[in-house]
């Protein structure tokens, strides 16, 4: 009897409802959301205690770069959705193209963050400058770590996809990586308005 090498969609219930990727990953996603949720609320609370400091420091950020990075991550997430969709539709030859696009956009985010940090460090601004920059550097650096990790995952997926590995019979790996990448996008959707826009 042949051994089944591709994982069937075990986590699809009778109503056709399906949790994408490895179910265990969703507990990690939930833990991340709970942790970051506390950071977000703490940020707004600390801001209420030092509004002048937060306002003045926030004004030194380049909002255009924040917006560009938001658009890069949103578009990258869209590319990953498109890759998942192509795999599910059994068009495996298209999957690596979308993943490559998502990876390039992820690197774009890192490059912009590099320029933002460099400009701040050159101006003598660091994690210890004030409460705003405590939050700014701590939160964006933790997030950037997630971007780097997520991009590595996407590269692994891309490498596998080039061998035609993802199709309707083998979705778990690509769905797991995609869900993590969307988490990275989701966290930035909060970080961008909090750090760059909120007055």
């Amino acid at each position: 009897m042949p051994i089944e090498l591709t994982a069937p969609a075990l986590d699809t219930d009778k109503a056709g409802r399906h949790l994408p990727g490895d179910p265990d990953l969703w507990f990690l996603i939930l833990a991340e959301l709970l942790t970051f949720g506390m950071f977000f609320v703490a940020y707004v609370g600390y801001r209420a205690m030092e509004p002048a400091v937060f306002d003045a420091s926030q004004r030194t950020l380049d909002r255009s770069l924040g917006v560009i990075n938001t658009l890069l991550l949103l578009t990258s997430s869209w590319a990953v959705v498109s890759a998942v969709r192509a795999a599910r539709a059994d068009r495996p030859q298209v999957v690596p193209r979308y993943l490559a696009g998502a990876i390039v956009l992820g690197f774009g985010f890192m490059v912009i963050k590099y320029f933002e940090y460099s400009a701040k460090f050159a101006a003598g601004i660091s994690l210890n400058t004030d409460t705003f920059f405590n939050f700014y550097f701590a939160l964006t650096m933790i997030h950037l770590g997630h971007v780097v990790g997520g991009t590595v995952v996407l590269i692994v997926l891309w490498s596998n996809a080039r061998n035609g590995r993802y199709h309707s019979g083998n979705m778990r790996g690509i769905e797991s990586g995609a869900s993590f990448w969307h988490l990275v996008d989701l966290l930035w959707i909060f970080l961008f308005p909090l750090l760059y826009l909120l007055r």
Binding site: G16, P20, S77, W78, L186
Partner: peptide, 14 residues
Amino acid sequence: LVVLDFMELRHAPP
């Protein structure tokens, strides 16, 4: 929108 459409929770177990 990201949660429901990108993360596909719209069609996940409730």
